[in-house]
């Protein structure tokens, strides 16, 4: 019977010793899907905008509706608690899909915000970062009809483009390039236009400030110089013949050769399919070689232009 008593005590202990942990029941929390941060230079304050979806009783009907919350404070944590004063349920940032930085903020520097984000174990490392043209607030508050909710749309937009047009850049990669020596990070720039949201530039950072940006025309040169790419399209203006042709399904491979300590040669091998080139009528190897020559000449010029630009601004890549 001693054994039985022990068992009973043990079971009671199991039952009554609770860890007293605050519960976070899925439907009783306000899930923030996307954050936007802006810089208010006059007050030296951050403006935080948080978007959370309103879930209706059925998935399809009300999912497009978002609620936006806004708060200003000097620290990120304070923004969160200020937002908490506006919501019905406690806010939880564990499922954040991405973070947008306003243009002013990236010119001011995002070191502090980055530190705050990295500190919080709730936030994932695979989340997407982007720069919002003008302000993140106005972008997140824009009411346009998108597929799914706005945060999800932005996330998908960034994810999709990371495969094709711009190199992949999530929070981890950003940290990697931000903290590593001889590396500087970059972020895609998105802008709200009249018809929707588009990705129309890449902003380059030096330390934590954005100092340079390129537009869509230079995406291709940048991407093939930066990384191996798989599915890309390039529009080539053949000036000699005054014709424009498109090359699609480009895959490229980089090899780097160190000439000496201070000089490196980057060799990019490009494979692609010619499309929209009927009027050109390439029939012989000779013509093909000529075209290849022309393309590589052009890319070389543009690539080195880009590189000199970076060298002048002392951006490391």
């Amino acid at each position: 019977m001693v054994n039985f008593k022990k068992l009973l005590i043990f079971l009671l202990l199991l039952l009554f010793l609770t860890a007293c942990i605050k519960t976070k029941i899925l439907d009783d929390i306000e899930l923030i899907m996307m954050f936007g941060y802006d810089w208010d230079a006059s007050n030296e304050e951050y403006i935080g905008t948080a978007v959370s979806p309103m879930y209706g009783s059925s998935e399809e009907s009300d999912l497009r509706e978002n609620t936006e919350y806004m708060a200003r404070a000097k620290t990120i944590q304070n923004i969160n608690s200020k937002i908490d004063t506006q919501t019905a349920n406690p806010i939880e940032i564990g499922k954040t899909l991405g973070i947008l930085f306003g243009e002013k903020l990236v010119r001011h520097g995002i070191h502090d915000i980055l530190l705050a984000i990295n500190e919080d174990p709730n936030i994932g490392r695979g989340i997407h970062l982007a720069i919002a043209r003008e302000s993140a607030e106005s972008l997140l508050k824009s009411t346009m009809i998108t597929e799914g909710t706005l945060p999800r749309f932005i996330e998908k937009l960034l994810k999709n483009n990371a495969k094709t047009n711009v190199p992949d850049m999530n929070l981890h990669d950003f940290n990697y390039r931000f903290l590593g020596t001889g590396m500087d990070p970059f972020l895609p720039i998105i802008e709200a236009t009249s018809s929707g949201i588009e990705l129309n530039g890449i902003g380059f950072f030096k330390k934590d400030k954005m100092i340079y940006e390129i537009g869509y025309d230079q995406f291709f040169e940048f991407k093939i110089l930066y990384t191996d790419c798989e599915d890309h399209t390039y529009q080539f203006d053949w000036e000699e013949k005054e014709q424009t042709i498109a090359i699609s399904s480009i895959s490229s491979k980089i090899t780097k050769k160190w000439k000496n300590r201070n000089q490196v040669e980057i060799i990019v091998k490009i494979n692609g399919t010619l499309t929209e080139s009927k009027q050109l009528g390439i029939r012989s190897f000779k013509e093909k070689a000529k075209l290849e020559q022309a393309i590589s000449q052009k890319l070389k010029e543009e690539g080195s232009k880009l590189i000199t630009e970076f060298q002048e601004l002392e951006i490391d890549l």
Binding site: N118, P121, G124, R125, G126, Y176, L179, G180
Partner: peptide, 21 residues
């Protein structure tokens, strides 16, 4: 990670698991 990053991270393995979906 690179070395500079590793110094800033207390539990690298946990941070790595974060990206596994």
């Amino acid at each position: 990670y690179n070395i500079e990053q590793l110094q800033k991270i207390t539990w690298p393995a946990l941070q790595l698991w974060k990206v596994i979906d």
